[in-house]
């Protein structure tokens, strides 16, 4: 058996980080699409849909992500579906992301002055037309910094999928630790890889926010 060098450890962690990135992208894009649907339901005119989407958001934001992962991983397989870890991971992270994004975006939509809604509705626009042409283009501007900021939570959330056996950065760290008996080095390096993924996102969210505030002041 050849001994692991620090470089070997780092190289294997970087391989595993590809899965972290892929899962983050799936969750973020999928969550964005579902989140948009939830946003429409949450801010729309149908009272029943508003209630349902509110309960959905409250349930997901009000329970640990780990429980949602366990329910989809162990729960779905009891219903007779064969659920591989990657599917359970992708599904629960997508739903989790959608609830948070919908709530972030709702704040942005509600920041648009009432007059804009009234003006567009006096032009006989339907709700979707109002959202598409009047509200969303303006809400998008304020939505960008918090959305980018939330992507950091998604990347960190993927770490939990290691617990149901999805092999990404965290699971790989545990596996490498079991092989090398160097937890200090392995988890330290894993933390640095996560930091390298998340910090640029955090920073750009901050910079975007500052830029936006400058624009606000000039108005």
């Amino acid at each position: 058996m050849s001994p692991f060098t620090t470089w070997d450890i780092l190289r294997n962690l970087l391989f595993a980080a590809e899965w972290t990135i892929l899962l983050s992208l799936v969750a973020f894009i999928g969550g964005g699409i579902v989140g948009l649907a939830v946003l429409f339901a949450r801010t729309g005119r149908n009272a029943a849909l508003r209630r349902v989407s509110m309960v959905y958001i409250e349930l997901i934001q009000g329970t640990p992500l780990l429980m949602q992962l366990f329910l989809s991983f162990f729960g779905l397989s009891l219903l007779g579906f064969d659920v591989p870890p990657w599917f359970a991971a992708g599904l629960s992270l997508t739903l989790w992301t959608s609830a948070f994004l919908a709530e972030i975006w709702r704040g942005c939509v509600e920041a648009i002055p009432r007059g804009q809604w009234e003006a567009s509705s006096s032009l006989a626009m339907t709700y979707f037309e109002q959202m598409r042409h009047v509200v969303l283009p303006q809400a998008l501007r304020i939505a960008v910094p918090p959305t980018v900021g939330f992507s950091v939570q998604v990347v960190k959330g993927t770490a939990l999928t290691s617990i149901i056996g999805f092999v990404e950065l965290s699971k790989a760290s545990t596996m490498i630790t079991n092989a090398t008996f160097q937890p200090f080095v392995v988890y330290g390096l894993a933390a640095l890889v996560y930091f390298a993924l998340c910090w640029p996102l955090s920073k750009s969210s901050q910079i975007l926010e500052r830029k936006l505030n400058v624009a606000h002041r000039n108005h």
Binding site: K156, S162, T174, T177, P183, F184, Y187, A191, F195, C198
Partner: peptide, 23 residues
């Protein structure tokens, strides 16, 4: 603050529980 906010809690926990004993 930046280090903690940009790494997952799971890794922080494992680093403390499994990593610190080795030092």
């Amino acid at each position: 603050v930046e280090l903690i906010r940009n790494t997952p809690f799971l890794i922080q926990l494992f680093f403390i529980f499994f990593g610190l004993p080795s030092i």
